[in-house]
Nucleic acid binder design. Sequence first.
DNA 1: CTTGATTCCATTGACGCCCATAGAGGCCCA
DNA 2: TGGGCCTCTATGGGCGTCAATGGAATCAAG
Lengths: 154, 154
Amino acid sequence: MDEFVSTFTNRLDSKGRVSIPASFRAVLARDGFDGLYCCPSLDQASVDAGGSRLVGQIKDTLGQFEPFSDDHELLSTTLIGESEVLRIDTEGRIALTDTLKAHAGITGAVTFVGQGYKFQLWEPERFVAYRDAAKARLRDIRGRLGARGAGGAA
Amino acid sequence: MDEFVSTFTNRLDSKGRVSIPASFRAVLARDGFDGLYCCPSLDQASVDAGGSRLVGQIKDTLGQFEPFSDDHELLSTTLIGESEVLRIDTEGRIALTDTLKAHAGITGAVTFVGQGYKFQLWEPERFVAYRDAAKARLRDIRGRLGARGAGGAA
DNA sequence: CTTGATTCCATTGACGCCCATAGAGGCCCA
DNA sequence: TGGGCCTCTATGGGCGTCAATGGAATCAAG
């Protein structure tokens, strides 16, 4: 599997370090990117993280806007300016910066949420709330998914 | 046969493991996917499971949405974040995570329900109730279809 | 010399792998 | 056609390995 799948919650130790889930590390290793690319999510109190594929996706998104346009500037300010490349230590852990922790409200633990080509970091309780809201909204918009359904209908 | 067919019920052992029905294992082996992809059903207390074909179907669904869009984030959080890739041991067993067991209400046994390109995991009693309700609805529909029937089982 | 950061080592518990057993069903042969 | 053998599936449990975590040791600066 070369995608980030599933959800894990790990604790920060006294030095602020947290282990990246082993299965995510395996994906990152295959990806080849050195370190972990992290950028605050645009609309949520979470952090988007990943490797080359995330970086590529961000570039593609930026490429859809005219260079020097307001929109391009706004996006690049957030997607690139607010980003960090975190070092992964020999045990597979990272130390989140204060900026990232503040954005996501992370204190004692982190929930890692796989999203295919990237994953997100959440404060565990906030994630539960977001997840429940997401499910509820998904039921609403499911009609738009067409006849094939999203892995559920009978 | 390369489709999941029929229904089986197996018990969980003291370590929470349960055997995948042999005929399903054969289909998975042909599918080539390493492990078992499991995704909570959106509307039912069950788990959708399968291999590459299920994953492909989910990817197709996600591919209809623009990356970083609200809808894409919602979908990937639910469809991928809630999913698990379970390892299949040398005996053909899996260990369900607490999250999946909680979603389906599974405690002592699991009912495996073949559905062609995927199959579902149910708590046995809940499945019986669901099946009976489905049958009743089917009779209802068939009645409206007139004499030719809907090819339902006896 | 003190502070912060990075690597190294130790512990604990979960999980994967291996072997063992029983029971059901299929197959062969008389 | 009946009985017995044999294979395979489902299930139990022991053991080793690895991941997550905590803390000490080492290194880089200021």
